[in-house]
């Protein structure tokens, strides 16, 4: 790897009781690049995600996040909400977790909680209606509106998030994560359940997040058309360990990867092999 690293995972191990979900996993993600984490079901990908985003405390190993200004943060030492707040790592979930009873716009406002909280003087200034807070709120709405345009949900802004179609919910979740203005965006199977057209739109969205905003992306995905098309770097996991890594082309031709997928699921193996050709 040549570029500047944003995330460095070193010897990550996660055990649940006697079960080793992830063992001595090391990989890195580069800044302004899309790194994909793939592997058959049960390979431990989501566990890695949960360790990076602080929902699990890793049993061993180190996870370093390096900001553009050179600041280094040890993620394994932070609580979940601090990782989002201080380390600026945002994530989405495999089974979408929106605030279904709140509107689309409100979902995006909640994402800007910490900024708005400071602007409202931890509620006191906001309670008396100070102008500084009004300005901040207006800026927050502008940012949200901007993202609604990007994910093509502007006309649904005042609808309940729970009423959106599945594909729209997926995009809204990404927009919500981006409203926290993250340095690293972690997406857990963003293309799951999308049709071909939605999937293509997702590709475009992710590429624009990388190219226009310079946000680094770490991605778990089963949909090979997404992975192979947009990833800059791919890490392949099976049974909790890394079995291969490299560019999409390298990974596709790696016999170990094919073997892992053949052992797990024939359809997926075919998808891996066919995706590039």
């Amino acid at each position: 790897m040549s570029g500047e690293r944003i995330l460095n995972v070193d010897q990550l191990t996660m055990r649940f009781g006697g079960i080793v979900a992830v063992q001595d996993l090391s990989f890195a993600a580069e800044r302004r690049k899309i790194t994909a984490l793939i592997g058959p079901n049960g390979a431990g990908k989501t566990t890695v995600f949960n360790c990076i985003t602080g929902f699990y405390k890793p049993t061993g190993g180190a996870i370093r996040l390096t900001h553009a200004d050179g600041r280094e943060i040890a993620l394994e030492r932070l609580n979940d909400f601090r990782i989002a707040k201080q380390a600026k790592v945002a994530r989405t979930f495999q089974n979408i977790r929106l605030f279904p009873g709140m509107t689309v716009l409100e979902n995006l406002m909640v994402a800007q909680h910490n900024m708005l909280m400071r602007a409202s003087g931890f509620t006191l200034l906001g309670l008396v209606g100070a102008p500084t807070y009004r300005d901040a709120e207006k800026r927050a709405i502008d940012l949200a509106t901007d993202w609604l345009k990007r994910v093509n949900l502007l006309d649904r802004a005042d609808d309940a998030a729970g009423n959106l179609a599945y594909g729209d919910q997926r995009r809204l979740e990404i927009a919500r994560a981006m409203c926290t203005e993250p340095a690293l965006l972690c997406l857990d199977e963003p293309a799951a359940g999308l049709n071909a057209r939605e999937s293509a739109a997702l590709n475009e969205l992710l590429l624009s997040i990388r190219d226009d905003l310079g946000t680094s992306i770490l991605l778990i995905e089963h949909d090979m058309s997404v992975v192979m098309e947009i990833s800059d770097h791919i890490v392949v996991m099976d049974h909790g360990v890394k079995i291969a890594q490299g560019t999409p082309r390298e990974v596709r031709d790696d016999p170990k990867v094919i073997a892992a997928y053949l052992g797990a699921d024939e359809e997926e193996a075919m998808a891996v092999m066919e995706s590039g050709s």
Binding site: F55, D80, R82, A90, R91, F93, R97, L98, F99
Partner: peptide, 10 residues
Amino acid sequence: EDEVACRALG
């Protein structure tokens, strides 16, 4: 609505 999502948003 969702505590886990809240934590993921910082």
